[in-house]
Nucleic acid binder design. Structure first.
Lengths: 259, 259
DNA sequence: ACCAACGGTTCAAATAATGAACCGACCATA
DNA sequence: TATGGTCGGTTCATTATTTGAACCGTTGGT
C-alpha cells in the first residue's frame, strides 16, 4: 500500500457518529504505527485535510474539502454522472433505466438510457414529468420523505393515469411501508399500461431523498428471472449514484436486499 | 516534502477554468517526474480523489470530496453559519458579502451572499481563490498573522492583478499596521478594478486568525455614507461570526471602532 | 510517411517511511 | 500526594518505498 493511500485511508474512519478521532484511537483503528499515524495526520493537517480541534486534542476533517467539493461539483454535473450509471444499469438489465429528481410534488426526469437488446422497450421523453402516486420512482421517493410531505401529497386529488393506478391513500401508504421494508419500490402499469418498473431512492448529503433511479420493462418481459436481476442491479446502481453525488442513505435504509 | 503532500498538492492545480488535466500537463505544472505524477494520480484515482474522464484521458477531481465535505459540514457547520451571517450582512449593507478561509498562503471563498437591491453588484464564484496582497480580506488576515508568516508571504513575488494592486512589501506592511489600528482592512481595486471592499478577520478558539468576512461594492457606489455603514456592519457581523464559530479575538484586537 | 506529443512502464539508485522505545503531561484512583 | 495508565508527540537506526532517465506503444496533425 502506498503512503498516499495510507494517509487518505485515515480519512475514512471519520463518519457522522465519529466526527473527531484522537491519535491513539486512529492508531488502533488503522492498525498502523503511532509515529506513522502522527506524521500522516500532521501532513494532512498542513494541507487543511484535517485539523486539530483544540490544543493538542483530537483530529477532525478539515476545511479543504469544502473548496474541492465545490470544484468537483462545478466540473461534473449531476446529469453526466447519472448518465454513466444509467448506461451501466440498462446494459446490465437489457431494459430502460432512468433517473428523476423530486421537484415540488412531482418528479422530473433528469436522464435515461436505453438498451439495444430488445426491439420493444419502454421509451422516455426528455425532462418528462412523473407523478408520485403513479410510478415506482414516486413510491421510492415518498417512502423516504417526511411524513408531512407524504400527507400533503396523498391529501391532494390523486388522478388515475391508467386503470391500474392506485388512488386510494391507504393503499398507497401500505405500499410505502413495503418499500421501506425492502428498500425498493415496484409498480405495474400505474403511469402507462404495459409498463412494469422497479425504483430505488437517491439521497443527498443530508441523507434526504432527492429522487430515484428506476428500470422499466414491458409487463410481458418482466418474469421472475428478470425481476430478480433488475432488483439487484437497480439497488446497487442507485447506491452507487447516491455515493457519486456525495449523498448518504439514511441510517434505516435497507442496505442488504433480503432476496 | 512528504509524499502525501506531493500527491495532494496536485489537486491544487484544478480550478474552475482548468477542470481536467492530462498527465503531461500535470507533470509540467508540478515540476515533478512524469512517472511520479502518474503513480500519485493512479493512487489518488483508486481512492476516488481524482478520476479519469474517458479511456486513458485526462484526470479531474473525484467524487470522494462530496462525501468528505458533507461529513466536514456535519461536524463543523462553518459554511452554514457563515451563510446566515453573510445574508444578514449583505441585507444590512445592500452589497455583496463574502467569507473566506486561509488555506496555505491563499484565501479560499467559503460562502457569499448577494443583495437584491442594486442591479450591478460584485459577483463571486464558488470556492474562488483570493491572494493575500490583493484583497481587503487578505490584509485583514495578514494583519493578525504571525510575523514569520507575513515575512514569508511578502518575500514571495507579489503579482499585480490590477494597476492598483500594491506589490511593495513596505507599503503593504504600512497597510497592515493601519489595519491593526482600526481592526478593519480596506482595499480599492486590488483584485479587480472597480471593486472597493472592507474586511474584518475571523478568529478560532485559540485566538488565531482563520479567515475574514468582507463586503465588496462597485467603487462608484462606495461613498462616505456607505463606507461608514459598511465598516460598522462588517465589524459587528464578523465579531458575531467569530463568536458563532467558537472563536475569540486576540486580546489586542480593536473591539470598539474609533469612528 | 513522418514526427511530436500523448499516457503509461521499467528498474537501479536515492530517499523517505517506518516502528520500538521513549518523553512529559494529564487524569483518575488509591 | 503517590501511582499507574493513557494521552499526544518525538527520536533515529533500519527498512521499504519513492524516484527519474530512458523507454514503450499509440494517437493526431502535417
Amino acid at each position: 500500500m502506498g503512503t498516499v493511500t495510507k494517509a487518505l485511508s485515515l480519512l475514512d474512519y471519520f463518519n457522522r457518529s465519529r466526527a473527531q478521532i484522537g491519535l491513539s484511537d486512529m492508531t488502533r483503528l488503522s492498525g498502523m504505527n503511532k509515529a506513522t499515524v502522527h506524521r500522516l495526520l500532521t501532513e494532512l493537517a498542513e494541507l487543511g485535510f484535517v485539523e486539530q480541534v483544540g490544543s493538542g486534542r483530537e483530529y477532525r476533517l478539515g476545511p479543504a474539502f469544502l473548496r474541492l467539493a465545490a470544484l468537483r461539483e462545478a466540473a461534473v454535473p449531476m446529469r453526466e454522472l447519472s448518465l454513466q450509471v444509467l448506461h451501466d444499469l440498462s446494459d446490465a438489465t437489457s431494459e430502460t433505466a432512468h433517473m428523476s429528481l423530486l421537484q415540488g410534488d412531482q418528479l422530473s426526469t433528469l436522464a435515461y438510457a436505453y438498451s439495444p437488446v430488445h426491439g420493444t422497450k419502454v421509451t422516455m421523453e426528455d425532462a418528462e414529468v412523473l407523478t408520485l402516486h403513479t410510478t415506482s420512482s414516486g413510491l421510492a421517493v415518498l417512502a423516504y420523505s417526511p411524513a408531512d410531505f407524504v400527507d400533503r401529497v396523498l391529501a391532494a386529488p390523486l388522478e388515475a393515469k391508467t386503470p391500474d393506478t392506485i388512488t386510494d391513500p391507504d393503499q398507497l401508504r401500505a405500499r410505502l411501508r413495503a418499500v421501506r421494508d425492502t428498500g425498493i419500490a415496484e409498480y405495474v402499469g400505474g403511469f402507462e399500461e404495459d409498463v412494469h418498473s422497479h425504483a430505488v431512492p437517491i439521497f443527498d448529503s443530508a441523507q434526504a431523498v432527492i429522487g430515484a433511479v428506476a428500470v422499466a420493462a414491458p409487463v410481458s418481459r418482466m418474469d421472475d428471472t428478470l425481476i430478480a436481476l433488475v432488483r439487484a442491479e437497480v439497488k446497487t446502481h442507485a447506491m452507487n449514484l447516491t455515493r457519486l453525488l456525495g449523498g448518504f442513505p439514511p441510517d434505516d435504509f435497507n442496505r442488504d436486499i433480503p432476496a
